[in-house]
């Protein structure tokens, strides 16, 4: 399974099985942090590709 899908699935399990309210809040917000982290990585990869294939720099 793709790592990001595994992370989100794992966190969904932790959210639903949390024994305390603060734990549930922690895992729910951690999931949002992971989503933002993957977005940032994707954006940086896109920017790097764009700069590598910039014909004006060839």
């Amino acid at each position: 399974m793709d790592t990001q899908l595994w992370v989100e699935h794992e966190l969904d399990v932790l959210i639903s099985e949390s024994k305390t309210y603060p734990d549930q809040a922690f895992y729910r917000e951690l999931k949002q942090l992971f989503i933002e982290q993957y977005q940032r990585i994707e954006q940086l990869q896109g920017e790097l590709d764009g700069r590598m294939w910039n014909p004006s720099q060839w």
């Binding site: 982290q37 940086l44 790097l48």
Partner: peptide
């Protein structure tokens, strides 16, 4: 690991 990758990409950019 993701953070390491993110910092590497950021450095390369």
């Amino acid at each position: 690991e993701n953070e390491e990758q993110r910092h590497d990409l950021s450095w390369n950019v």
